[in-house]
Write a protein that binds this DNA or RNA. Structure first.
Length: 190
DNA sequence: TACTAGATCGGCT
DNA sequence: GCCGATCTAGTAG
């Protein structure tokens, strides 16, 4: 079952936690590739100094101000893309950054998109989608998908395993300088 | 295994 | 002009 719009239209921390274990599915010319979400981070509102929206609306982040259930994709460090899922109601800027995916199907396609070759070593398989930039490369997610509706087939998230609270680890967010006091990173250990 | 630096560019100050 | 919600390769230990 594809997650409905109302799933995303809830407090961001709750959505972030519940996204763990869900299936993210990318459909490219009829082929489905994807896997389970293992790691996420929450970025919430203008009072969060680490959130792109903290300095107000700009052309880049305006999708975060829009309705829930859409993709926010942006370029980081000039070479990598990051995928976020917009949460909460319109005009409240918040999103969940997808930081890690456990590949399940379409793995060959992922290998091709990340390493430009057919087979991967054990190590490369481990590193296929265990980071925000990596999973975007593996799943073929680019800024063309910025603003994409997650209720459509191009990129969507399906209900799946529910992860027990005891297997979720919360830590400070990664790669930011401010807002590190908040434990808004959720990792599925299992 | 642990740390450092380089790649690279769009968006904002 | 500066710097970032990153990743990888390279060097040192």
């Amino acid at each position: 079952m594809r997650l409905s719009r109302s799933f995303y239209d809830r407090p961001t921390l709750k959505v972030a936690r519940e996204l763990l274990g869900k299936e993210i599915v990318r459909e490219i010319s009829g082929k489905k590739i994807g896997g389970k979400i293992t790691e996420v981070e929450a970025y919430i509102g203008q009072n969060d100094p680490a959130c792109h929206a903290c300095r107000g609306k700009t052309p880049r982040n305006e999708i975060m101000f829009g309705s829930p259930g859409y993709a926010y994709v942006y370029l980081i460090y000039g070479m990598y893309e990051c995928l976020n899922v917009v949460t909460e109601k319109k005009d409240f800027p918040a999103a969940v950054l997808i930081r890690g995916v456990q590949p399940e199907y379409g793995i060959e396609t992922m290998i091709k998109q990340r390493y430009q070759k057919k087979a991967a070593t054990e190590k490369e398989l481990q590193n296929l989608a265990n980071g925000p930039g990596k999973l975007c490369q593996a799943l073929g997610i680019t800024r063309k998908l910025n603003g994409a509706d997650l209720l459509k087939k191009e990129l969507s998230i399906y209900d799946s395993t529910s992860v027990s609270e005891s297997k979720i680890k919360t830590t400070p967010r990664i790669g930011i300088k401010e807002g590190t006091d908040k434990l808004w990173r959720f990792v599925w250990e299992g």
